[in-house]
Nucleic acid binder design. Structure first.
Lengths: 163, 163
DNA sequence: GGGCACCCTGTAGTTACCTTAGAGTCAAGA
DNA sequence: TCTTGACTCTAAGGTAACTACAGGGTGCCC
């Protein structure tokens, strides 16, 4: 193999999964790379840098669309970076709003939990009773619309990793 | 139409979308209802109560699997409600953990934002520079694995609603 | 009987990937 | 040389919890 990194090496450098790289390529976030004689993707330093940028933004919970926008700013610099600031401010707003929602949610859950401090006979479980109440004075929805994801998907490891 | 609520009426009672009800039926969360002569679904008070229960749990950000578990508890009551408490405690743990993650995230974003207080010439934008740094002393990932969703999907309204 | 709101089924799209199947490639060891 | 094992390829399907849409049928009022 002449030169260039294989996809697995790039994945290690940028700390992400191989499949994620191929996905970004399909999504147009990473340019189509050169290929080796055996049809392997070959990457250079520019790919490492670009992928690191993307992963860093993702670790800040930006969407791929937001990242696309930032990448465009990088490629065709305008007179000032006002739009970059604006994008970041908006994103900060999202995160802050979400924290507020989750805090209200946490309070509700704790209120609910307090209804049943110990393991009582199941039939009189106040929690189940309260949850089935349709009235407006019960537990209220804290969320504007529905907010997804206090549950993470923990990626199943490949068999090659653990075995 | 003899008696029973149509799906639209049920949706209004439980404050959810018609499609969501059909989805819950497919998922086995709601029992298959009776049908009218014209093949319309017909619901009774038990459906209203059960759907309200589900929606209330969803507004508390529980997964459908968790809700399924709670519904099972309701249907076949055991000696005590310890498992209900356990489920709720675990869910509270999820939410609390998520709040912590998002707070770290918010701090990082604000640190990043401070690098560029005004609209400077784009080429020297410190934010873009910092985001492309691969080094370990830059902005760090605050998230264990990836945490989805500070962005909400806001459902597009149907044309019949706004027009 | 015309029009409108409502309902039906079935399929596909959303986000950001992860998983799997089935096959090819590469380098090293026996 | 052959084989083993790690790596790579493409294509398709799965995840969560719905939402959207196409193409039709039903119920009811005027």
């Amino acid at each position: 193999m002449a030169d260039g990194l294989t996809i697995g090496t790039l994945a290690k450098r940028a700390e992400c999964q191989v499949e994620t790289i191929r996905y970004y390529e399909r999504e147009g976030l990473l340019p189509v790379p050169a290929r080796s004689a055996g049809n392997y993707r070959l990457y250079g330093p520019a790919h490492v840098e670009r992928l690191s940028f993307i992963r860093r933004c993702r670790s800040l919970d930006m969407t791929l669309d937001e990242i696309r926008t930032l990448l465009n700013f990088r490629e065709s610099p305008a007179e000032n970076c006002g739009p970059v600031n604006a994008l970041l401010d908006e994103h900060i707003g999202h995160v802050a709003g979400r924290i507020g929602e989750l805090r209200r949610l946490e309070k509700q859950l704790k209120d609910l939990r307090r209804l049943c401090a110990s393991a009582k006979p199941d039939k009189s479980c106040e929690i189940l009773t309260e949850l089935s109440r349709g009235e407006k004075n019960g537990v209220q929805s804290a969320l504007s619309g529905h907010v997804p994801g206090s549950h993470h998907r923990q990626p199943k490891r490949r068999s090659t990793d653990s075995h």
